[in-house]
């Protein structure tokens, strides 16, 4: 069997997702036996722009250069994979869609030649994305499972149940009971509840489950004393542009109970 040619790329982002791939210390050597990493600019000097069977892209589109790179990668790739919350949802950078320019203008870099700003947007705002590995950063087991599934010709399965499932399985104390604004019940798991295991509440980086009961969840948080605005803010923080329409409708609607 010829090994599939794989490229790892990063657009605007923190490189944490690419590091998650590299941090799979126990597996990475075996992975190299299964795939041919032909391009990985983050860790390698010489990289060949060519056809990729699988191209795994981190980060989001924030300037014109990102967009050109992404379009070229799409053209060159049979399978394009968005890895991590930025590529998937737009993550924290996309939050600027929800606020006025005057609130962040002072934080922007000075306009320099060569930098042409684009509103931060996830990959699928621009090109067709075949698969997504969610999370900020993604769980390394999930990265491995994804690679294995593709190699075996299986459809990679995205974990669909809420974070609470893994959190309870890890015998944790529920952080909602502690009075924390934890988004576990409405957030897709697969992260082995890594944050809540350490008593840090879930901020929803993997996106909402398609089964989230928003009215009940918001009512619960309001009962615990949280305000609608802070709930919405927390829900948007990591979900970027992927907050479901139904959730927006709920918050915009006449639900000021």
């Amino acid at each position: 069997m010829t090994k599939p040619k794989v490229g790892f790329y990063g657009l605007t982002g923190c490189a944490g997702c690419q590091l998650s791939v590299l941090f799979s210390e126990d597996e990475i050597v075996s992975v190299l036996g299964l795939i041919d990493i032909v391009s990985f600019p983050f860790i390698r000097e010489k990289n060949i722009d060519q056809h990729f069977d699988i191209c795994i892209v981190e980060g989001l589109v924030a300037d014109k250069h990102d967009l050109e790179t992404l379009k070229k990668l799409r053209e060159n790739s049979s399978i394009l994979v968005a890895i991590g919350a930025c590529a998937h949802t737009g993550n924290v950078p996309a939050y600027r869609h929800y606020t006025l320019k005057e609130n962040y203008q002072h934080l922007l870099y000075e306009k320099k030649e060569g930098i042409q700003d684009i509103d931060p947007t996830p990959l699928d705002s621009w090109v067709k994305v075949d698969y997504t590995i969610p999370g900020c950063p993604p769980d390394k087991r999930e990265i491995m499972n994804f690679i294995k599934a593709l190699l075996l010709g299986k459809e990679p399965l995205t974990y669909s149940s809420p974070v609470c499932v893994e959190c309870r399985r890890n015998n944790n104390l529920c952080l909602l009971e502690e009075g924390k604004l934890c988004l576990g019940p409405i957030t897709r798991g697969g992260c082995n509840s890594v944050c809540t295991n350490g008593s840090f509440e879930c901020w929803g980086c993997r996106g909402q489950t398609d089964d989230a009961n928003i009215p009940a969840f918001v009512a619960l948080l309001q009962e615990k004393g949280f305000k609608r605005e802070e709930i919405l803010k927390r829900m948007r923080e990591f979900v970027g542009l992927k907050l479901p329409e139904s959730t927006m409708v709920f918050f915009n609607g006449n639900n000021n109970a």
Partner: peptide
């Protein structure tokens, strides 16, 4: 049903 978050705490515990 209206209050259920489908979080599966009930069945886990």
């Amino acid at each position: 049903v209206d209050k259920c978050l489908s979080c599966a705490a009930c069945t886990s515990l």
